[in-house]
Nucleic acid binder design. Sequence first.
DNA 1: TTGTACGCGTTATCAC
DNA 2: GTGATAACGCGTACAA
Lengths: 341, 341
Amino acid sequence: MDPQARQPAAAATLRDVARLAGVSVSTASKALNERPHVRASTREAVRAAADQLSFSPNSLAQGLSAQRTGTVGLLTSDLEGRFSIPVLMGAEDAFGSDRVAVLLCDARGDAIREQHHLRALLARRVDGLIVVGARPDVRPSIGRVPVPVVYAYAPSDDPGDLSLVSDNERAGAMAVEHLLASGRRRIGHVTGDPTYGAARDRAAGALAALERAGLELAGGEPFYGAWSEEWGRSAQRALLRAVPEVDAVFAGSDQVARGVLDALREAGRRVPEDVAVVGFDNWEAIATGSRPSLTTVDLQLQHLGRVAAQRLSAAMSGDARQGVERLPCRLVVRASSAPRD
Amino acid sequence: MDPQARQPAAAATLRDVARLAGVSVSTASKALNERPHVRASTREAVRAAADQLSFSPNSLAQGLSAQRTGTVGLLTSDLEGRFSIPVLMGAEDAFGSDRVAVLLCDARGDAIREQHHLRALLARRVDGLIVVGARPDVRPSIGRVPVPVVYAYAPSDDPGDLSLVSDNERAGAMAVEHLLASGRRRIGHVTGDPTYGAARDRAAGALAALERAGLELAGGEPFYGAWSEEWGRSAQRALLRAVPEVDAVFAGSDQVARGVLDALREAGRRVPEDVAVVGFDNWEAIATGSRPSLTTVDLQLQHLGRVAAQRLSAAMSGDARQGVERLPCRLVVRASSAPRD
DNA sequence: TTGTACGCGTTATCAC
DNA sequence: GTGATAACGCGTACAA
């Protein structure tokens, strides 16, 4: 196995193609780029030569002369988390992978590292930037940079920036309205860390929906705690003690919901017959593995990524927006919230 | 909010810096690049000018003349999955984010799209390529490309390629040896899809370890099925029927292990007192949310990513390897496998 | 020590 | 219709 054979010669350049086709470099360029004023036979000859050499234009050179790289940076702080990935995928397919490539940088929650990555991305002359925060709360703007920026998931603290976020308040209302529609009236809310704006927004939406129905939250207040199953279990036990007749629980995350389900089963309550449960996140592995499978709210992050890419494209074309844009969530109905007979 | 103000003028070039410092472009270049034969005062003047203009060299131009882009491509098929992300993170910090940036492409399991992305990455003249498969099985080589390639997670079918994979067989043995050390003797194996090479490798390692101890697998055969909690529950019920005296279960994934735990609890068995359980994957949310928390095998994918980056760097320096390199896994001991008194 | 000239690969302008 | 020329921004021989 000759190492030389495994690494073929350097890629062909336009000059090689031109030489082989017996034309000048500029003619070859026009021929391959569908430019007018090229004889058909010449065009064919150039194409043939390009094919033969498996020519593929050097995007560095293209970018250098065109002043655009066809590259966008994605600056995240939540790579191991599951939120930036769908955003990334949405962005990827909205841009079209043939036109734009994504340079990924993970700051891992470190502001210094973020600055560092930011510089690196700008040095690479990305055409635009998507900033995905680690948690759905207001985060510091990266400041003024020479390219358009869109914030996704976590909004920027600078109202002059454009931020795209999930509409958590509306989502909380949706969850409760669904429970009401399935015939529930004593609805509790067990959720996670109250320092998360998303937790408070979801709770606010839920409370508003209850109020519109002339109802109060079972237990009086939301049960704030941690984003864990363990918290879900203990909070649900407390909720059952406080309001034994509770007939539905809206959980702030799917993990919390799993804990809620466990506690209900241990207390001898049937789901969904006695108590309905709605989760949040539509985390596939969690929501479909549970018994029963979990009705939950999908943040539609991939859609959020697509919109981010569209807004970024628009901004790169000079059509920039500002402010915070809230995107809708979607309720995914499974077994845990079947209507009451 | 003047849009002009939000998008400052185009980035400064070396020419701007040189002009401001009152020197030639080449002198400015030498000054900034720590080259010799530059008077200290000149160097300082250039640096000051660069600072003032927030100069940052255009990597496109650098790459064009240096024939290297400082960019590697990561071609994955498993973005939404949780396997390529740790690999990516490991690669990122092994390269050093200041030296190399990662271009991410997700083929989403489509061979056509993979070819497409491959071309795009090569057009961008990446210095190297990491290919992360969708599942831990042999996959088609991407063939001969003009840059070094390392396969991670899923090995290439071409022995001339370099592949880095987890040592699943050794990991299966580790799991069983741990159970034996904790005083268990009737050990069953509930695992997932038998078309996964990793499932068979883990089972083989487990069987070999049992044989070395002069024992047989409880139930005779591994319980193959699906990578789901549901399968874990039903398989464990079957295992209990077949071998009521089973005192340990090695599960092929953490999800399967969760199902096993559920079935055991329903059957009135205490974990770890009556039956010990070991999972696989160290999927944080699954393994620490369970009751009790799950002893499990960590694939150390981030380490795998780091090694991939090292091998790629070596190959870019002309020092290429071939074949399949198996990297060790690590047992993470939690509550579900506490030793027997 | 500093500056001039050229090359990296491509595209666009303008002669021919 | 075609081809020479300049330009994109940087690094680096080589000349001064």
